[in-house]
Design a protein around this nucleic acid. Structure first.
Length: 408
DNA sequence: TCTGGGGTCCTAGGACCC
DNA sequence: TCTGGGGTCCTAGGACCC
């Protein structure tokens, strides 16, 4: 049975959402109509472009480039801060609205989702008309625009929503591949990033059409298992389902770019302390336990490295996570100046079998350990250094962090 | 005042076992 | 006067996504 999948993508999500928020608060200009971007905080060394207005795009400004470089391209550029809690609200409202149309909605990121209309033909005879209705209603109801891609699988729907923007509906069915898909640059294909694009081009593969025609044996030689995905994607093939139930996390992580490069182990451990608290809390909220814990670094040269360990007993206790993090840190820090440090928990499980009872039995002991860790820190760095209260104070001064993936 | 943060998935290579 | 090979688990690093 042929499937009908929509991919809905908010145009310039962060910028559009901020524009609406600013207008609501009486800001005199719609920032969507001027050269503007949503940018990270440059004073905190997070100065990259998170979203750009269509006018800024005309100056050649791209997502994720430095604000410094964006300003060079357009000196009049106006930079606005991100407002993540507002973005989360906008996202939630949109998803709630869209779920009226079909229960099969898969949120793909903060500003994107897939809808599966397969089997609803008795309700919706003309999918284009449905898409048109959604496009208009979103604009009227919420004040921002979306692109809608319609196809018989997720991959093609996603590719289609990326065609001409903003406020557009596109289809990408097999009879349209030759005109709409195959002429595109191979780098435009989903999951083909810079590295893969460069490798493909070195093989004389420049367009998605070239890739669809390339011999699988050649691709396998250079891309191993990725070859089959590449070839099928270029041929517009994708059998993956739209899944409305969100899968449990496979990993939870936290990381922070520091105000300046730290080369002081005690300062780095202090960061790890509150990161362990944060990531432990997130884990407990999901009622999960982590079997693998890693400390990740990015140093002053932008070189990334990490060190991880597998635990015999999975844990979600912050004090335990901190102690393992310190063990890992002591065994891996290269005494280089660190720009960014973080903790990553993976191999997450909900069931801990006998370990659950172990923790229940030893809850008191665990609590003592938390206290011990705090004591250890405070004895080392001073009484006021890291008490929970001062930790919360510190957190309040930090910008709110976004939990979901970000849109562009 | 140049380069975020949170994810998923894959691969190569080492240790270890039989 | 020699060091195979399959399987599993683990670690480190990297590509890609929004």
């Amino acid at each position: 049975m042929p499937r009908i999948i929509f991919h809905i993508d908010v145009n310039n999500a962060f910028l559009s959402w901020s524009a609406i928020d600013l207008l609501k608060k009486g800001y005199p200009i719609d920032i969507r109509t001027i050269p503007s971007i949503i940018g990270g905080d440059e004073t905190k060394r997070r100065g990259i472009v998170l979203a750009k207005s269509p006018v800024a795009k005309k100056y050649g400004i791209v997502t994720a480039e430095t604000i410094y470089s964006a300003r060079k391209k357009c000196p009049k550029l106006q930079v606005f801060p991100a407002n993540y809690s507002w973005y989360r609200k906008c996202s939630k409202d949109l998803m709630n609205y869209l779920s009226q149309y079909t229960p099969t909605l898969e949120q793909f990121s903060i500003d994107e989702c897939f809808l599966d209309f397969t089997g609803t033909s008795f309700l919706y005879h003309d999918y284009i008309a449905v898409a048109e209705k959604i496009r208009k209603e979103v604009k009227e109801k919420f004040g921002f625009t979306v692109n809608i891609g319609i196809a018989s699988n997720k991959l093609c729907a996603k590719m289609a929503s990326d065609f001409e923007k903003p406020d557009k509906i596109h289809t990408l069915f097999p009879n349209e591949f030759a005109t709409k898909l195959w002429p595109l640059k191979v780098g435009d294909l989903f999951m083909v990033g810079k590295k893969t694009e460069a490798k493909l081009m070195s093989l004389g593969i420049y367009t998605i059409g070239d890739l669809s025609q390339a011999p699988l044996s050649l691709l396998k030689k250079h891309f191993k298992n990725q070859a089959i995905f590449l070839k099928e994607a270029a041929c517009g093939k994708d059998d993956s389902e739209v899944v409305s139930t969100s899968e449990p996390n496979k990993c939870i992580s936290v990381s922070e770019t520091l105000q300046y490069d730290y080369q002081d182990g005690s300062k780095l451990k202090k960061i790890l302390f509150y990161q362990a608290e944060e990531v432990g809390r997130a884990l407990r909220k999901k009622k999960m336990y982590a079997k693998t814990i890693a400390v990740t670094y990015k140093n002053h040269c932008f070189k990334s490295y990490s060190h991880q360990m597998t635990l015999v007993n999975p844990t979600n206790i912050s004090a335990d996570i901190y102690q393992y993090a310190v063990l890992l840190f002591d065994g891996s820090w290269r005494e280089d100046a660190i720009r960014n440090i973080g903790i990553r928990l993976s191999d997450l499980t909900t069931t801990v079998h006998e370990q659950v009872s172990f923790f229940e039995k030893h809850q008191e002991e665990k609590n003592n350990k938390v206290q011990e860790a705090i004591d250890q820190i405070t004895s080392k760095y001073g009484a006021n250094s890291i008490m929970p209260a001062s930790y919360h104070e510190e957190k309040r001064r930090q910008p709110e962090k976004l939990k979901e993936s970000q849109g562009n």
